[in-house]
Nucleic acid binder design. Sequence first.
DNA 1: ACGAGCGCCTGTCGGC
DNA 2: TGCCGACAGGCGCTCG
Length: 275
Amino acid sequence: MPELPEVETIARNLRRGTNSAPSLIGQTIQKARLLWSRTLAEPDADTFQGLLPGQKVVEIGRRAKFLTITLSESILVFHLRMSGDLRVEPSESPLAKHDRMALDFQSGWRLGFNDTRKFGRVWLLNDTNSLFAALGLEPDDPELTPKRFHEILQQRKRAIKPLLLDQHFIAGLGNIYTDEALFSAGIHPLRSSETLDQEDAAKLLEAIRSTLARGIEANGASIDWVYRGGSFQNNFQVYQQTGNPCPRCGQPINKTTVGQRGTHFCPNCQPLTGE
DNA sequence: ACGAGCGCCTGTCGGC
DNA sequence: TGCCGACAGGCGCTCG
């Protein structure tokens, strides 16, 4: 499910609290329960469950699509992959159907990692250096200037959509926001990266940033049973709009496959050739 | 370096 | 109604 805006929204809710649950900051873990063993990437289950009790939540953050919970002595990292979610509920309420891990706090609240498809992963680490070492820059990193973006696009010779999805190139984009940003910039998903000139690169970087910002403002996107609370799905221009009129030119939106991912675009506003 | 194919999982939807 | 394949917001791996 979640891409950068959804993970960011979840991190903010855990940090600030919501109408229905308090902030986790400052709370002390009483007990950790691993409910599906493969969900835990590192360390082993006994170590994990042994190390967590007594640790206090210091800080909650995000890097790419990873959500980080800094504890007094370790750092807990989540990747939600396709169907993961983090929920704060009263400890006495029953576990939800697809809960894979649960942290009970002394306060009587519980953090549940719910993940229908079991692709999500959890790490308990001393630091995130090696886990995050190969990640690309955050889209909003000031070091990522239009000039720098153009340069790294020139260094590659790869279809732009799979390149944007590559977390080593730039971190945080997924299938929805990539399709939306490419539409916003008027760039065909199969366009080869090195063919983008400075103007194209600047336009694309701006499109990525504004699309992600609008996603965050909408608290992310909610689709089907996966992830609740966001409304960005009401603002999709091309994603899941196959056959609908393009909001810019009225031609029907196309769907194809690029890099084995469903890909939505306007063939008129995002021409492959002619430039 | 790049892209295709596949595995990992459960659930939903459309077609027959 | 039931079955069956396609598909789903991710990513790591192998292979050519």
